[in-house]
């Protein structure tokens, strides 16, 4: 108890001394780690360039404006590709992720010893790797293009879809499931009547949410050759065509804002 008796007085402190010391020690270690890491970054930095940064930023800004609007006409096709990468990638991810989720959920998995760890492994490994890395890999395996990009988005999203969905499955109201079991329904029927209606809102919500994220991700896949508007960003950057870069960035911003708007509308409509 942090109440110490000093004769007649009872002194109240928030924490007792040992705990207080421990907290200070933790702060000290934390700050030391941070300073150490900062020193590493600082050593790897050419500070001369950094001090020059405001001038460079102003210089780039000056070159980037006004945007080269004629370039827009070349961008419609890659933008269309970008949207397709995101949409079809999300669709593929859902098709593959849903069974994985049912295998991974504690209350629906057919085998806890064998299939569940396998499903969890799929979830962890697809989720841990950024879609850009998947794109890098797929481009080197099946060649550049939007097909590689779509697969990259799909693989990265499997883990996301499956993880959120299996958590939703594990959180369902079990009495509703019991009620369906009590009617003599088969296992598949219990899933279709007792579980699916309960997870539907979560499922729809996370699908549009992931689609929204994927629009953002697919705008950059072109940097590694996986198609979409990122290719044009890359080539414009390579020739230092800043006015074109501005146009591309504006276009990406608008696409991201629209997709965010759509996804929030759809999510509201579902609940």
């Amino acid at each position: 108890m942090p109440v110490i008796s000093k004769g007649e007085l009872k002194v109240w402190q928030r924490r007792d001394r040992a705990k207080q010391l421990k907290i200070w020690a933790m702060w000290f270690v934390g700050v030391a780690i941070f300073m150490f890491c900062w020193k590493i970054i600082s050593d790897a930095t050419t500070w001369f360039f950094v001090f020059d940064a405001p001038r460079i930023a102003a210089d780039i800004g000056g070159r980037a404006w006004p945007p080269r609007w004629e370039y827009l006409s070349e961008l419609w096709k890659p933008m269309w590709d970008t949207i397709n990468i995101a949409t079809l990638g999300t669709l593929l991810a859902i098709i593959m992720g849903v069974p994985v989720a049912f295998l991974a959920a504690n209350n629906t998995t057919p085998s806890r010893k064998f299939l569940r760890p396998f499903a969890l492994l799929i979830i962890v490994s697809t989720r841990s790797i950024n879609s850009l890395v998947w794109a890098l890999l797929l481009v080197s395996i099946i060649g550049p293009g939007i097909f590689a990009g779509t697969l990259a988005i799909a693989i990265r999203s499997i883990g996301f879809v499956a993880k959120l969905l299996y958590e939703a499955i594990e959180e369902i109201d079990t009495t509703q499931v019991e009620a369906i079991q009590a009617t003599g329904a088969s296992k598949l029927q219990v899933i279709a009547y007792g579980i699916v209606p309960q997870i539907m809102p979560a499922f729809a919500g996370l699908s549009v949410f992931r689609w929204d994220i994927n629009i953002r991700e697919s705008t950059i896949l072109g940097l590694v050759g996986a198609g979409g508007i990122g290719l044009y960003l890359q080539s414009s950057l390579n020739i230092l065509a800043w006015p074109q870069v501005t146009v591309i960035l504006i276009m990406i911003l608008i696409a991201v804002l629209i997709s965010e708007w759509v996804s929030s509308k759809v999510r509201l409509a579902i609940i």
């Binding site: 930095t45 360039f49 950094v50 930023a57 780039i60 850009l132 953002r216 991700e217 705008t219 991201v256």
Partner: peptide, 24 residues
């Protein structure tokens, strides 16, 4: 939130030069 990290990173590298500072 609007721009993807990679795009921000490209701009930061252009402004601050290569290296971990841009990533930070």
């Amino acid at each position: 939130r609007a721009l993807h990290e990679i795009i921000v990173a490209i701009l930061m590298v252009a402004i601050f030069g290569f290296g971990p500072l841009a990533g930070f």
